[in-house]
Structures are given as C-alpha cells and as structure tokens.
Amino acid sequence: MSYNAPPPPPSGPVGQTPPPNNLVWAILTTLFCCLPLGVVSIVYAAQVNGKFAAGDLAGAQESSRKAKQWAIWSAVVGVVVILIYIAVIIIAASSGTSTSTTSL
C-alpha cells in the first residue's frame, strides 16, 4: 500500500510526517494468514506513532519497517502453506491413494 500523503502529526519532530504504521496490513494478516504472525505486526504498528510523538524519528521508521516486514512474512508463510497443501493433494491424487482430506 502506498502512503504518499501521511497526515501532519500533532507532535513529533518539526517538519516531519510520521512513517506509515501499516496497521491495515497488520489486521489483514492477523485475520487471514493462518499463522498468527500478524499479531507481531500490530505491536510494531502501535510503536510507530508513540516513538514519533516522542521525537524518535529513526525508531519510528524502524518500527514502521518491521510492521511491514512481519505482515509480508505472515502473508508469504500463508501462501507457502497453501502451495504445499495443493502439492500434497496433487501427489496423493496422482499416486492413486485415496487419502481423506476431512478436517484439513
């Protein structure tokens, strides 16, 4: 997601805008990415504005980067799991063994 116009903050370093907190990606990966890695993303999203308001621009940028990174990792792991699942089904089908997929 691009954040080309972050809003001016009520506080923080003069003349700077807060880095994106990537909160929406954190919520989406928490809800939809199988592994609860997205929760870590929420932690970093929460750190962004707090550090920025305290004048710690570098820290805020680092938290912003990590929030994004954890959301991406969560999404990648989710996609990999789905691909492995599809591969297992194809292998099971081609080898002729009728394995039950119930409760999978």
Binding site: A5, L23, V24, A46, V48, N49
Partner: peptide, 12 residues
C-alpha cells in the same frame, strides 16, 4: 482519514 492517524494507545 489515514490509518497512521490512529492513536498509539488504540492500537495497543
């Protein structure tokens, strides 16, 4: 509105 405007305490 921008999601980066959500106050930190709400995200906590």
């Amino acid at each position: 509105w921008h999601p980066s405007r959500v106050p930190a305490r709400w995200i906590w």
